[in-house]
């Protein structure tokens, strides 16, 4: 990426907008960033929409309609590097709960004229449709990680992203363990770190919004939680929120389904 400022595009699929808002939430860096990269397609922030190709595409949201399934192919074709941002793009998001249910029933529950609505039976991550170069986890992503990735790309080195579990970060920060001390269900041991162990820091259990860590031992955790009196349906719900179709959480959620 030498010569001209790299051309950045931001794309929205089914999502809440929170992950791309993280870019606008870089209040101290936004104007400097605007001088280093060209916002070539960022409709939430600019009406100056330029045609591709783009050097970097940030993709928010999951694929839930036939139209979006076609659109992500065009985005991929127009992008040198495609980075998915957040739980929807990397693991389907909360709307992927439909994957465990009947989308027609959903449509009828919400809309008086379900025939007006064009919707796929599932919400799927971007990587289920096109190759993805880099994934940022979180519901929402952490803006510091987004800045790290953009800075690394501008300087041509690999981004340094936190590794390990929320549990490890939590212990390193010296927070009392909510699970051990208070018997509060916590997904910290099986969740990828990156949030700053926010929930345990506030005295609540981690709810897994960064998705499963690598080699997450979910069955051992479930056994422990069952020992504390957690019912099977409650266990399923615990794994089935914002990263419900991330493989490790999906499998564990199904295991406790009656």
């Amino acid at each position: 990426m030498t010569g001209q400022a790299p051309r950045l595009a931001v794309w929205k699929f089914a999502s809440c907008d929170g992950c791309q808002l993280s870019l606008l939430d870089c209040e101290d860096e936004l104007l400097a960033l605007g001088e280093r990269v060209q916002f070539a397609n960022f409709p939430e922030a600019s009406s100056d929409i330029q045609p591709g190709p783009y050097d970097i595409s940030l993709v928010e949201g999951s694929i839930t309609t036939p139209h979006d399934a076609a659109r992500i192919q065009q985005v991929r074709a127009a992008s040198r590097m495609l980075i998915t941002i957040g739980a929807c793009a990397t693991a389907g998001g909360i709307q992927a709960l439909r994957n465990f249910d009947d989308v027609n029933a959903y449509r009828q529950a919400v809309y008086a004229h379900p025939e007006y609505i064009d919707s796929l039976a599932t919400a799927t991550p971007i990587a289920a449709h096109v190759p993805v170069d880099l994934e940022l986890r979180g519901c929402p992503i952490r803006k510091e990680q987004l800045l790290e990735v953009l800075t690394a790309l501008l300087h041509g080195h690999a981004p340094r992203l936190p590794q390990g579990s929320v549990c490890e970060s939590c212990k390193a920060a010296g927070h009392p363990c909510v699970l051990v001390a208070h018997g509060v269900p916590c997904l910290g041991p099986v969740t990828q770190t990156g949030c700053g162990a926010l929930c345990p820091a506030h005295g609540r259990g981690c709810y897994g919004c960064f998705g499963p860590r690598e080699q997450a031992n979910t069955s051992a955790l479930s056994e422990r939680l069952a020992g504390l009196g957690m019912s099977k349906p409650a266990l399923t719900r615990l794994y089935r929120t914002f990263n419900a179709v991330a493989p490790a959480f999906e499998t564990e959620g199904r295991r406790h389904e009656s």
Binding site: D68, G93, I94, R98, A109, A234
Partner: peptide, 26 residues
């Protein structure tokens, strides 16, 4: 695209409503 929050909330615990519905809008 619709995300069907009103449907996916059915069968969830009432304590979960604030965290789940927050995801309607960032």
């Amino acid at each position: 695209p619709p995300r069907y929050f009103e449907a996916l909330l059915r069968g969830r615990d009432f304590h979960e409503a604030p965290d789940i519905t927050a995801r309607i809008c960032g």
